[in-house]
């Protein structure tokens, strides 16, 4: 597999820890929704009101946005923009990087302030970074084939049958 872009693997224990941090951030920041998204656009965890959101679309667009901003940073020989903020009439969004692979997204409204969000995000980032570092390490040392047994062509064909 590609050494520059190792596989992301999530386990039960880390998922629980990450979920707990997201829940706490949701409470402490008084935000509407917290999302943790892999830089490739896959949702890793969500807290708060996310049922009404199309989190799959959001994840892909946020990742595209962060990738584009990262591309701009490179052209400007900036290391990387570590956070972005977009303000809307009702809803605002704060996006920041956790380590090298994860994007932390906070959706919030007038119920809180950008200052409070930023403060709480910083704390959550500090807690999240070591967990994702551990996951990255685990991914390289543990075999990552999820299929204990052989998968067959039949298994794959079945996926496409309506």
């Amino acid at each position: 597999m590609n050494p520059l872009n190792p596989q992301l693997v999530m386990y039960e224990e880390e998922q629980k820890q990450i979920q707990a941090i997201a829940e706490r951030l949701h409470q402490d920041s008084r935000a509407r929704t917290i999302l943790l998204i892999d830089k490739n656009g896959q949702l890793v965890a969500a807290a708060g009101d996310s049922a009404a959101l199309d989190t799959t679309s959001l994840s892909s667009l946020v990742a595209g946005n962060v990738a584009a901003t990262g591309g701009i940073a490179q052209l400007l020989r900036e290391d990387e923009f570590t956070a972005q903020f977009h303000e809307g009439k009702g809803m605002s969004i704060h996006m920041s990087l956790v380590g090298r692979r994860i994007i932390l997204v906070v959706l919030f409204d007038k119920n809180t302030t950008q200052g409070l969000v930023r403060l709480r995000v910083k704390k959550a980032q500090e807690e999240l970074v070591p967990i994702f570092e551990l996951l990255a390490k685990k991914a390289t040392t543990q075999p990552s084939s999820p299929f204990g047994a052989e998968i067959t062509d039949q298994d794959i064909d079945n996926l496409f049958n309506d």
Partner: peptide
């Protein structure tokens, strides 16, 4: 790279 989630038992791949 694919994302394998043993917690939710999901595999995500990018084509």
């Amino acid at each position: 790279m694919s994302f394998i989630n043993y917690s939710s038992r999901e595999i995500n791949c990018k084509l």
